[in-house]
């Protein structure tokens, strides 16, 4: 048997410290999932949100009363009334049905603007942060102009200018969320851009787009994503606020903000009933915030 001696044996054997580590590492998202599943608070919140989402999506299949049909004789029935578990509103419509159907619009107005703003803001921010120079100045100073207005004022102003309606609310909320997401995206991109692995990728001769796709996006996505998740609850509250002011959803459409507005007159008759839509907004945004906190720590790769 011939034995060829490899003269290019490494001078130094691998150091033992790393030998305990597994030979094959799990993928990044598997790791995030595993860490998230060990976080009880995040898991409870995720469970509640899933339940809400399922109820809202499958609302027509649930044995619910018609959310639009009222009855003059059964107005403002308290919680626990037979046939109306959560009572009825000021026009005698079933509260449970209206809360669940209302969740459809409220969640949509909470999620869609953030998703749109996430896509547009990430694009603008990564562009500004990676290219830098005058392009950065143009994008970021424009964004700064929007920061001069408080977000609720900006949403009201844009909605007021565009007119009431669901689509206009979506547009105005998207515009409100683009600047903060752009700013976060720009700052994380600029810091990743200065790291040496981006330099190393550049001197491999890769095109700028490839460098961004392979080396920048993956490393800026999670902070932007976590930040955007935390905006969802803000978006929901702003949407409810717009509806409350009559700039968003129009009656008789059920929507939590609008319901809060119309039930306001009943606050002395049945305060618990009148506060129900508010409690839903509170619970949902609390869950979203806690979940985004959990995501933030689960995405920290160094742990």
């Amino acid at each position: 048997m011939s034995t060829t001696v490899d003269t290019k044996v490494p001078a130094v054997p691998a150091r033992p410290a790393a030998e305990q580590a597994p030979a094959q590492s799990k993928g990044y998202w598997q790791g995030v999932g595993a860490r998230l599943s060990r976080d009880p608070v995040a898991m409870v919140c995720a469970g509640l949100l899933t339940l809400l989402l399922a109820a809202v999506v499958f609302a027509p299949l649930l044995p619910l009363a018609d959310p639009f049909t009222g009855s003059m004789i059964s107005r403002l029935k308290p919680i626990g009334t037979e046939g109306h578990i959560l009572g009825t509103d000021e026009l005698g419509r079933d509260m449970l049905a209206r809360l669940i159907y209302g969740g459809r619009l409220t969640l949509m107005l909470g999620l869609l603007p953030v998703i749109f703003a996430f896509l547009i803001g990430t694009f603008l921010g990564v562009l500004a942060g990676y290219v830098g120079g005058w392009l950065n100045t143009v994008i970021m100073r424009t964004v700064d102009v929007f920061f001069a207005f408080p977000s609720i004022l900006l949403a009201i102003a844009i909605s007021g200018a565009l007119g009431a309606g669901i689509v206009n609310s979506l547009v105005s909320l998207t515009i409100v969320f683009i600047p903060p997401i752009t700013r976060v995206a720009e700052s994380v991109t600029a810091s990743v851009r200065s790291l040496e692995y981006v330099d190393a990728a550049r001197i491999s001769g890769a095109r700028a787009l490839t460098v961004v796709r392979v080396h920048v996006l993956g490393n800026v996505m999670s902070p932007i994503f976590v930040y955007a998740t935390s905006l969802t609850s803000v978006s929901m509250i702003l949407a409810a606020g717009l509806s409350f002011l009559g700039l968003g959803v129009k009656p008789p459409q059920p929507e939590w903000g609008l319901m809060l507005n119309t039930l306001r007159t009943a606050i002395y008759i049945d305060p618990v009933l009148a506060a129900l839509p508010g409690a839903m907004i509170f619970l949902t945004s609390l869950c979203l915030n806690l979940l985004s906190d959990g995501l933030r720590s689960a995405m920290n790769i160094k742990d």
Binding site: Y28, L195, E196, Y197, D199, A200, A201, V214, H215, G218, N219, I301
Partner: peptide, 10 residues
Amino acid sequence: DSYASLNPRL
């Protein structure tokens, strides 16, 4: 910087 010069995601 051996850490900053390797993409943590790859």
